[in-house]
């Protein structure tokens, strides 16, 4: 390790923070010996799912470098290239592997850029739902009493409505409250809010349950006895101990959030058409199904399905891997 650090120091020209370096190595070694890594290695389907997810996420992240064209750069779009079928078909063009849409944009490029929007909105909604849900769950479980009753009652009522309906409603309200131009500008944030707010209940319920258990354990009582403020006890002591199941919910929720975003955009109430997500692309492509240009809708649809399937498989695996009963 010391040799490696020295080599690093020579290459980089400055001495890296040794303790941080050592900690990282330690962490990697611990991860390599952990149960999770072991169960990951033994499940080929999970490895494939992880690889697929990683490829999609990475190409979305580095869309500008990965995509063969920039579909939003007007200078590179040529209407002469409109509606070219995929490259392997008779009239195909090798420049556009998966064909082009009605405006001459390469389908592959729009998919890569669209996946970026889909994943971005998906991740952001999950983080939002997670913060709201975990926060309310901690408060509900730790404080108890009326606060608990009110929060859980709201959760019960919300749970009896499908998430998609709620998201649609929030989106409709935002349209009513904001002027049209402002709404188009804020469309993505509205979308994140509406998907996030329709998904917090599961986090809150789970966290509340585990908080009720942790609250009565000795370490929490000890912290209370030495007079730490409640907020610090919740954040420093209870929170780390209730996060396990939350990660499983978050993974499965990510798949759901991506589907919800795609559905809303497909219905025409999601992201603005200038920044198309996978759902928007499918919506646009639907009109061209009848004129035989099936590739405009089908390829974004396939990518969406594969992405959601892969994330779902990862979630299933994580749930089993973290479940002590199944070991």
């Amino acid at each position: 390790m010391a040799v490696e650090a020295a080599a690093m120091a020579e290459r980089g020209g400055e001495v890296p923070d040794l303790s941080l370096w050592r900690r990282t190595i330690d962490l990697l070694q611990r991860a390599r010996d952990s149960d999770i890594w072991y169960s990951f290695k033994r499940s080929p389907i999970t490895i494939v799912a992880a690889a697929v997810t990683a490829v999609i996420i990475l190409s979305a992240l580095f869309a500008s470098w990965v995509a063969p064209h920039n579909p939003f750069d007007l200078a590179t779009i040529d209407l002469m290239n409109a509606s070219i079928p995929p490259a392997w078909m008779a009239d195909g063009d090798t420049r556009f592997l998966l064909g082009t849409d009605d405006q001459g944009r390469g389908i592959l490029s729009t998919i890569i850029f669209g996946a970026r929007i889909s994943l971005g909105v998906g991740f952001a909604s999950v983080v939002f739902a997670l913060i709201v849900g975990v926060g309310l769950g901690l408060i509900s479980g730790y404080v108890g009493g009326t606060v608990d009753a009110v929060i859980m009652r709201i959760a019960d009522i919300q749970l009896s409505f499908p998430a998609i309906l709620l998201a649609l409603l929030v989106d409709g309200v935002a349209r009513g409250l904001l002027p049209r131009e402002t709404h188009d500008e804020l469309a993505i944030y509205v979308l994140v809010f509406s998907i996030g707010i329709s998904g917090w209940v599961q986090y809150a319920r789970t966290v509340r349950g585990s908080t009720l258990v942790e609250k009565n354990k000795e370490y929490v009582q000890a912290a209370r006895v030495i007079g730490r403020p409640a907020i610090l006890i919740i954040l420093r002591h209870v929170l780390p101990n209730v996060m396990g199941p939350v990660m499983v919910i978050a993974t499965i929720h990510l798949a759901l959030a991506i589907i919800t975003e795609a559905t809303l955009s497909f219905l025409g109430v999601g992201v603005s058409p200038t920044e198309p997500s996978l759902g928007t692309l499918i919506n646009v492509g639907q009109d061209y199904l009848f004129s035989g240009e099936w590739w405009i809708a089908l390829f974004p649809g396939a990518v969406l399905a594969i992405l959601v399937l892969a994330v779902n498989l990862l979630g299933d695996w994580l749930r089993d891997a973290l479940n002590p009963k199944l070991r």
């Binding site: 798949a255 795609a262 497909f266 199904l289 009848f290 035989g292 809708a297 089908l298 959601v308 399937l309």
Partner: peptide, 22 residues
């Protein structure tokens, strides 16, 4: 059933339209 859970509803509809309608 795993595919049925993962495929968004609207995508199933579009694929049916493509196959049986178009």
């Amino acid at each position: 059933s795993l595919i049925g859970i993962s495929l968004p509803t609207f995508l199933i509809g579009i694929m049916l339209i493509l196959l049986f309608g178009v």
